[in-house]
């Protein structure tokens, strides 16, 4: 059982959510020498500071990113994409790298409420802007309606494209889009699901749109 499970676990076992261990804690102690991954806090972030010596980044520049309502004052290599910055520096790994060239949609996040590809953005371009990642939409105990619809409709398989799909789907709610499935499918075509869960993705989005 991972640390975050322990933290988030309500006292009443009958109300407890499904437990899924992430490789640390009890199971980790089975093998000597195992290095556990660091626990994530409620915002989904990891504190790398305690033992990290801090990467040696020559020419690093300061930047303040506002992600999911939290300010992050960072020093980064100017080459760092918004995607790599969110994942590796801010440690929010819900946003995924699938192609790194704007060809799959897995890295979709919102900047000032609009969906963009974080792999084709430099982090420096977004100093001070409002960035939202999948972690900012909801948590397992308090899901965004789109997250809940994806769960109910089985709108994924492996789950790797799912963050990007959901970020696109949530943005789509505010975009000009016809009511029919074909319009949704066209506007969701920038998010590749190699597992092919497209029918269920459309069903989830339409379910949310009907209720909005």
């Amino acid at each position: 059982m991972s640390n975050d499970d322990l933290k988030s676990q309500p006292a009443d076992p009958t109300r407890r959510k499904f437990l899924l261990t992430s490789g640390s804690g009890v199971a980790a102690s089975l093998v000597v020498g195992y290095v556990p991954a660091l626990a994530r806090d409620a915002a989904g972030e990891v504190d790398l500071a305690p033992t990290a010596e801090g990467p040696n980044i020559e020419g690093a520049v300061p930047i303040t990113l506002r992600i999911n309502g939290r300010e992050h004052s960072l020093r980064i290599d100017p080459r760092t994409t918004l995607l790599d910055c969110i994942r590796e520096t801010v440690t929010l790994t819900g946003t995924k790298k699938g192609c790194d060239h704007g060809q799959c949609g897995a890295c979709t996040v919102h900047v000032n409420g609009k969906r963009v590809l974080s792999c084709l953005n430099l982090a420096l371009m977004h100093d001070g802007e409002e960035i939202t990642t999948v972690e900012g939409l909801g948590t397992p105990d308090a899901m965004h309606p789109m997250q809940a619809a994806f769960l109910a409709c089985d709108a994924y398989q492996c789950g790797y494209c799912t963050s990007g799909q959901i970020m696109s789907a949530v943005a789509l709610l505010k975009e000009p889009c016809g009511t029919d499935d074909a319009s949704v499918k066209e506007l969701m075509s920038g998010n590749i699901c190699r597992c092919g869960a497209y029918s269920n993705i459309v069903a989830a989005i339409q379910q949310v749109r009907k209720n909005v």
Partner: peptide, 13 residues
């Protein structure tokens, strides 16, 4: 059963 983690970005690949 792992769905809540997948839809909230907490599933760790």
């Amino acid at each position: 059963v792992d769905g809540p983690r997948k839809v909230t970005g907490l599933a760790q690949y």
